[in-house]
């Protein structure tokens, strides 16, 4: 140090810059080498590919990516396409219903499971097993159950209930509810597990205090426990929400977008245009819109989680 102090200023500057470079590349060298896959994934895939997609969504790419800028043309065409507009309407309708119902049913079931019931683990096993299955399996089973002639509708009609109607899968107005039934079947158990973990995390003495205060159980859940579970709720919304935006396999297996185009979703639009229709620009613009919708969910969450922590 004493030596450095007697050196001319510029020399001190170079030596400290060398220290900086040394720190950047050689310090913990094996750790950095080991982290190369992660760094590459982050930089090339998550950042690089996303930027690439956004960039090329403003070009006139058709069969192959082209570097011809067309501004918002792709987006104008996107929102001029009936199929896309149906896709986003479906996503909004399905998404809001699915989110609300998954959360409510998940919470309700978690509360029931939290009542010191017998056979708790059996009930849990039953509710969660669909989550272990592929969306393809889920879609195909429900497709079969909702088969208008041989499925549940046909069965009950054969049994004498001739007015029974459960033709949602072939009814353009009801097909979203068919998706909903299958989607809930797969996802509610997972939400229940999250909520139950949240409920179990509540200090037992809070419950005792509420009992001494004479608060009815339902009121304790609503006024005390639910507000305490904010973290779990937010996490559940983010996970379920980003799952909804991705919705693809289930639609492919259950309805393949039909009848007609009445159950199309954005993820399917992207895939079909990129790999089926040979219209990459459309696919890229549509996927950029998907990214935007995830951002709409994520940014408030990130703000709450990380911005909030900074301020406290």
């Amino acid at each position: 140090m004493a030596d450095v102090a007697t050196q001319p200023g510029n020399m001190a500057g170079t030596s400290s810059r060398r220290g900086f470079l040394h720190r950047l590349f050689l310090h913990n060298l094996s750790a950095k080498v080991a982290a190369i896959p992660m760094i590459a994934t982050v930089l090339v895939i998550f950042v690089g590919c996303t930027v690439w997609t956004i960039y090329y969504s403003f070009t006139s790419s058709k069969l192959l990516p082209k570097n011809t800028f067309v501004g918002f043309d792709q987006y104008a065409r996107l929102f001029g396409t009936n199929r896309w507009n149906i896709s986003i309407t479906n996503l909004l309708l399905y998404g809001s219903m699915s989110l609300v119902l998954t959360l409510t049913l998940g919470f309700l079931l978690a509360v029931l499971m939290d009542q010191k019931i017998r056979f708790e683990s059996a009930f849990r096993t039953i509710m969660l097993y669909p989550f272990a299955l592929s969306f393809i399996v889920t879609g195909l089973v429900w497709q079969w159950i909702m088969n208008p002639t041989l499925g549940l509708q046909g069965t009950l009609r054969n049994m004498g209930w001739t007015g029974f109607t459960f033709d949602w899968i072939s009814n353009p107005r009801m097909v979203l509810f068919a998706l909903l039934i299958a989607g809930l079947w797969q996802g509610v158990g997972f939400c229940m597990i999250l909520m139950l973990a949240g409920l179990r995390g509540v200090d037992e003495e809070i419950w005792k205090a509420a009992r001494v205060d004479g608060i009815p159980t339902w009121r304790t859940y609503i006024s005390v426990v639910l507000p305490m579970m904010r973290g779990v709720l937010v996490t559940a919304v983010v996970i379920i929400g980003s799952g909804i935006v991705r919705l693809y396999d289930l639609v492919v297996a259950l309805t393949n977008g039909g009848p007609g185009i009445s159950s199309e979703v954005p993820a399917k639009y992207v895939y079909d245009y990129m790999f089926g229709g040979g219209n990459i620009g459309q696919g890229l613009a549509a996927s950029t819109m998907m990214l935007l919708s995830v951002m709409i969910i994520m940014i408030p969450w990130a703000y709450l989680e990380f911005g909030g922590k900074g301020r406290r």
Binding site: D203, E205, I206, K208, A209, A210, R211, V212, D213, G214, I215, S223, V224, P227, M228
Partner: peptide, 30 residues
């Protein structure tokens, strides 16, 4: 009897305050 009907008040080790309520609301909730 239920705890609320016994004529007791209780103070817990972990305080067991209702975290989302103000002090005033905590006192008056019951």
């Amino acid at each position: 009897e239920e705890p609320k009907d016994r004529g007791i008040g209780m103070v817990f080790q972990s305080y067991a305050l209702y975290p989302q309520m103000s002090v005033e609301k905590n006192l008056s909730f019951g």
